[in-house]
Simulated assay, not measured.
Amino acid sequence: MAKVKMKTNKTAAKRFKVTAKGKIKYWKGGVSHYNTKKTSKRKRQGRKADYVPENIADRVKQLIPYQV
């Protein structure tokens, strides 16, 4: 009998990308609207992508098993 495949969490697959070196990259939320009250620094830093911290990277990798 064939091995059962794991299901990819589709919401996680849309939000995370695995780089060539194996780091998990994500794009920050909360910068689309209500920007007048936010500082320039906060808006600028929201435009950049960031990497998932090491302490939760294992949990994110379980959600996207075939992208790792």
Results as ranks from 00 to 15, higher is better:
residue 1 M to S: 13
residue 5 K to R: 13
residue 6 M to Q: 13
residue 10 K to H: 07
residue 10 K to Q: 12
residue 10 K to C: 02
residue 10 K to A: 11
residue 10 K to R: 15
residue 11 T to M: 11
residue 11 T to C: 10
residue 12 A to I: 03
residue 12 A to Y: 06
residue 14 K to E: 09
residue 14 K to N: 07
residue 14 K to H: 06
residue 14 K to G: 04
residue 16 F to R: 03
residue 16 F to H: 05
residue 17 K to T: 11
residue 17 K to N: 09
residue 17 K to P: 00
residue 18 V to S: 03
residue 19 T to F: 01
residue 19 T to L: 05
residue 24 I to P: 00
residue 24 I to Q: 00
residue 25 K to Y: 01
residue 25 K to E: 10
residue 26 Y to R: 08
residue 26 Y to V: 04
residue 26 Y to D: 03
residue 27 W to Y: 14
residue 31 V to L: 08
residue 32 S to F: 13
residue 33 H to R: 15
residue 34 Y to I: 07
residue 34 Y to K: 10
residue 34 Y to C: 05
residue 36 T to Q: 12
residue 38 K to F: 06
residue 39 T to A: 11
residue 39 T to S: 15
residue 39 T to H: 06
residue 41 K to L: 09
residue 42 R to I: 07
residue 42 R to V: 07
residue 44 R to Q: 14
residue 44 R to T: 12
residue 47 R to Y: 11
residue 49 A to L: 03
residue 49 A to V: 04
residue 51 Y to C: 05
residue 52 V to K: 00
residue 52 V to F: 01
residue 52 V to D: 00
residue 53 P to W: 00
residue 54 E to A: 14
residue 55 N to R: 12
residue 56 I to P: 00
residue 58 D to V: 10
residue 58 D to T: 12
residue 59 R to V: 09
residue 59 R to I: 11
residue 62 Q to V: 10
residue 63 L to A: 08
residue 63 L to W: 01
residue 65 P to V: 09
residue 65 P to L: 06
residue 66 Y to V: 03
residue 66 Y to L: 03
residue 66 Y to W: 05
residue 67 Q to T: 08
residue 67 Q to I: 05
